[in-house]
Write a protein that binds this DNA or RNA. Structure first.
Lengths: 354, 354
DNA sequence: GTGAAAGCGCTAACAG
DNA sequence: CTGTTAGCGCTTTCAC
């Protein structure tokens, strides 16, 4: 009964184990383990023998067994707190994901993308994280009152946020990467004023997200006397931007500029302006935010926008998480806790729409 | 030394184990395990006690330990054999992924999206799969000579392909879900002929993919006498479609229709036609393929296209994989091997571009 | 330097 | 029905 387990090998050709490599190389399991994990403290000759056996057998360590022992998974999760439909239709996420993926690839850490169903229910994500499949998590597009941060905290999972979380005041230990939303927005609106625009509308993102709030704040700093009817809240999508623009035009037909807080919404706004027979920038100047340079934005007059280095922010998030993981695994908890958020610059790029 | 392990609890609050639950409930580990896994064969009273202990302690099973024992991971990988840039810019993948994700969600199986670096090197993906992190894999957008199928085969991983793999002849056991590309393309081109078009060009996808080859074949079946100069091979991207259209117009200025083998390319083609001063459908009729209904395709004349149920295909792929996994885990290998590929219908949707 | 032994947390036979 | 016993494949003290 001890040796009769070659049964399901029909379906999966029974991977070799450390044991078998050890037997073939004529050493102990411990030695093989050492070699496989870098080989420090093992004589060169023995190392060679072991490596040969590993290759001969095509041995690959079993990550489940390894994780059981080391409590590390070499995997991090990415959670985007938006329905998947948005995740895949907004190039912003794609770019950030690319940055993350590139950074992780260079560390042999696996990225696990956790998709959230349209209902916004986190049951799946929560249980995945609770199970402890991953060492840490990157969290995007957090809305106010999101339950995720509490969960992550309770689990003691290392986390880095994309965009400042709402509760992150100066003394919080939350780690995040954010663009200078306030500064970027302020510059954009100042630019419109300098161009002589006087009725500058704004289309914001959902105001339960700090990025949207901050960009609105920048607008207000640059244009404190703004008529409140010049403001429309939207949702960071192109159709949303179109609707918001339609509302603004209905309410304030005399507006002469609009600052749209994302390029995707700006694409929608441009469509609405075109449909209303207005020309850009003659009748209405437009400035976006993000600098997506996406094919979706073709054809329209080239969009002035506030550029942020999205892919770079992704890389940075990944790097921060990896560093924090490294530190806390090495037991250097204070250093890990001492890490600070990073705010990256956002600068205006003037093209033909303004 | 035996009991001094509450050390890194500073970083992660030491999850409770089966052992502790058992102790609290006053039963054995085996009993707790039974309850946690459905509880069949355990008296109701005992079950209640155990459940209570589980809740009290906030116990969550350790998946690494479980996988070590069961050899199941309750996770499947999705590999899209394209650089991530394309994965995120092509709504086709998003839709399919959504279908997959929905289907898996209802089975508590986790989806792990494996991103491929732009260089197209599979080192990362290969080692992830080799390590045996997942029970099966869904593979998309395979090109000829792709090394993945061989790897998957060697590992004995269950796989379902999105789109018929090139080597999948009738007797192969490869499982896939594909649309009726030939039929859809044939119908599209027949429609153009019936509308009186005589110089019908075609813009194909990369001809090392069966979907591209099949659509071209449908075109040829419906238009066998086509001038070879009416064919342009492209790459399933919008900019690619634009370039292809420009070439076609340069080569055959008298063309009066174009069948574009994907909506994304069609968006590019429409842009090129507009730029050349031609009107659609008066000068040139256009039919696409996919029916993306994406915001990217706004503004242009509504695109006639060949509709395929992309999300449904995704669901189907997931379902097939889950079934095959279930069967082979239950030891019903013949039934698993007897499963057949599925080809879903593709039908023409006529709008104003043709 | 290398090996022996102990277990990570769980499930699966097998007794009872 | 429930408990006991054996590991799954790996890392990691601790001796030698």
């Amino acid at each position: 009964m001890t040796e009769s387990s070659g049964d399901r090998s029909a379906v999966a050709p029974a991977r070799p184990t450390l044991q078998e490599v050890a037997a073939l190389a004529g050493v102990s399991r411990a030695t093989v383990s050492r070699v496989v994990n870098g080989g420090s403290g093992v004589r060169a000759g023995v190392q060679a023998k072991v490596r040969q056996a590993v290759d001969a057998l095509g041995y690959v360590p079993n990550p489940a067994a390894r994780a059981l022992m080391t409590r590390r998974h070499n995997a991090v999760a990415v959670v985007i707190a938006e329905p998947e439909s948005r995740v895949f239709s907004d190039p912003f996420f794609a770019r950030q994901l690319r940055g993350i993926s590139r950074e992780l690839a260079s560390s042999a850490v696996q990225l696990v993308l956790l998709l959230v169903a349209d209902t916004g229910d986190y049951a799946q994500v929560g249980s995945y994280l609770s199970a402890g499949h991953v060492d840490g998590v990157l969290i995007f597009s957090l809305h106010r009152d999101d339950p995720l941060p509490a969960l992550v905290d309770r689990l003691g999972l290392a986390a880095v946020y994309g965009g400042r979380p709402g509760w992150a005041d100066a003394d919080s230990s939350a780690l995040y990467v954010d663009a200078d939303n306030i500064g970027g927005a302020r510059t954009a609106v100042q630019h419109l004023r300098e161009r002589g625009r006087r009725r500058i509308a704004v289309i914001t993102g959902p105001l339960d997200q700090t990025s949207a709030v901050d960009r609105l704040r920048g607008y207000r700093e640059a244009f404190p006397e703004a008529d409140p009817r010049l403001l429309a809240e939207s949702d960071f999508t192109a159709p949303g931007g179109r609707r918001a623009m339609q509302h603004l035009l209905a309410r304030c037909p005399d507006l002469d500029a609009v600052f749209v807080c994302s390029d995707l919404m700006a694409a929608g706004a441009l469509a609405a302006l075109r449909e209303s027979g207005r020309s850009v920038p003659e009748d209405v100047a437009v400035v976006g935010f993000d600098d997506l340079e996406a094919p979706e934005l073709w054809g329209a007059p080239a969009l002035s926008t506030v550029r942020q280095d999205i892919e770079g922010m992704g890389r940075l998030m990944a790097r921060l998480l990896l560093t924090r993981l490294e530190l806390s695994f090495a037991g250097r908890a204070e250093e890990a806790a001492a890490m600070r958020p990073v705010v990256t610059p956002a600068r205006l790029v003037v093209r033909s729409s303004s």
